[in-house]
């Protein structure tokens, strides 16, 4: 049982990759159901083609079609596929030497059980119904009973399709799930917030009060320890007005993002300022936390909806000068 506060996060983006000429031709070939290898300076045909020759370092220029079938060189069995793999049922990964190629090629093989796969077996490409010019245009491999292809150049597939127009880009979704954990010191801070309290901690060496508390005081390299309950009032040290919208943003611009130095703390933290026109926010402005309704509280600093001005006069610049 974890003692720290934990929450799931997903880091997800659809990456837009430009392919360059070599990979573009290879992926364009797949869209047209042609597998292209690259001829390297030692005369070998390598699939997928390397972009640059291993020996001469020149860009690989000769792309040659190989067969869409070949022989299994190595395999393993995947009883429990992980997300986004080619098949969502148990399958085999195989290294296949396609007929006409001198290297092996990694992809999935669709067979019912590990008993149905062996080194040396013949397999062929199963093309995806919808092809976009991506490695996933090969849905997977499947067993084949055809004899090896002797002369790849005679393959009818070579001349099929849309003339082998290269692709220029490919979209690759990357989504990874993580469990984020706060440090023990931060966890104590967030748990106190769930009770409507703001709790900092003092460094046992330099005696500075950190809010949120820290796993390591950045001056002394030891955890902050002694709890210090802080008021929810403080001073704006400095700020910016965010006018720019961006992907993933959770607060509608424009908004004022400010460093608030709570009374009794030795470090400011970032929060929102509202209840005042953005162009009237100033360094030294005295502010107070505005809490969300109690029933919405959880272990997050978002329990404080924002800070708003108090009626006090601005703090003297000298009091914030050392916090900029």
């Amino acid at each position: 049982m974890a003692e720290t506060l934990q929450a799931p996060i997903t880091v997800s983006f659809d990456y837009t990759r430009s392919t360059g000429p070599v990979l573009g031709a290879f992926l364009g070939g797949l869209r047209d159901r042609v597998v292209l290898g690259g001829r390297t300076s030692d005369g070998r045909v390598v699939v997928p083609p390397p972009e640059f020759d291993p020996a001469t370092h020149e860009q690989v220029s000769e792309l040659v079609p190989v067969a869409a079938e070949g022989e299994v060189v190595s395999w393993t069995w995947v009883p429990e596929p992980v997300a986004a793999q080619p098949l969502d049922r148990p399958f085999a990964w195989v290294l296949v030497r396609l007929d006409g190629a001198d290297s092996t090629f990694l992809h999935a093989l669709d067979v019912a059980s590990a008993d149905d796969v062996e080194t040396g077996m013949r397999v062929r490409v199963r093309w995806a119904d919808e092809r976009a010019g991506a490695i996933t245009d090969i849905a997977c491999f499947e067993p084949s009973h055809a004899p090896p292809v002797e002369e790849v150049a005679q393959q009818p597939s070579r001349n099929q399709g849309a003339g082998g127009e290269p692709v220029t880009g490919v979209v690759t979704p990357v989504a990874l799930d993580y469990t984020y954990a706060a440090s023990p010191e931060e966890s104590a801070f967030y748990r106190a917030l769930a009770d409507g309290r703001v709790v900092g901690q003092r460094c046992p060496v330099c005696r500075k009060v950190y809010v949120p508390p820290r796993g390591a005081c950045p001056v002394d390299g030891v955890p902050t320890t002694e709890e210090v309950e802080l008021p929810d009032t403080g001073t704006v040290t400095t700020f910016c007005i965010v006018n720019v919208p961006f992907l993933g943003q959770r607060i509608q611009p424009p908004y004022v993002s400010a460093y608030v130095l709570l009374d009794g703390a030795d470090i400011a933290f970032l929060h929102l300022i509202q209840g005042i026109p953005a162009d009237e926010v100033r360094m030294g402005l005295r502010v107070r936390a505005v809490w969300r309704p109690r029933e919405e509280w959880s272990t997050t600093i978002e329990n404080i909806s924002h800070f708003e001005p108090t009626s006090e006069p601005d703090a003297d610049y000298a009091t914030i000068e050392g916090h900029l």
Binding site: Q85, I135, V174
Partner: peptide, 23 residues
């Protein structure tokens, strides 16, 4: 892995090692 020709298939580390072991 190669971001164009391998990562989109999400080959996992253990499977790759298994392919090597069998070879």
């Amino acid at each position: 892995l190669d971001p164009y020709t391998m990562t989109p298939l999400w080959p996992d580390t253990v499977s790759l090692a298994a392919l090597q072991a069998r070879l």
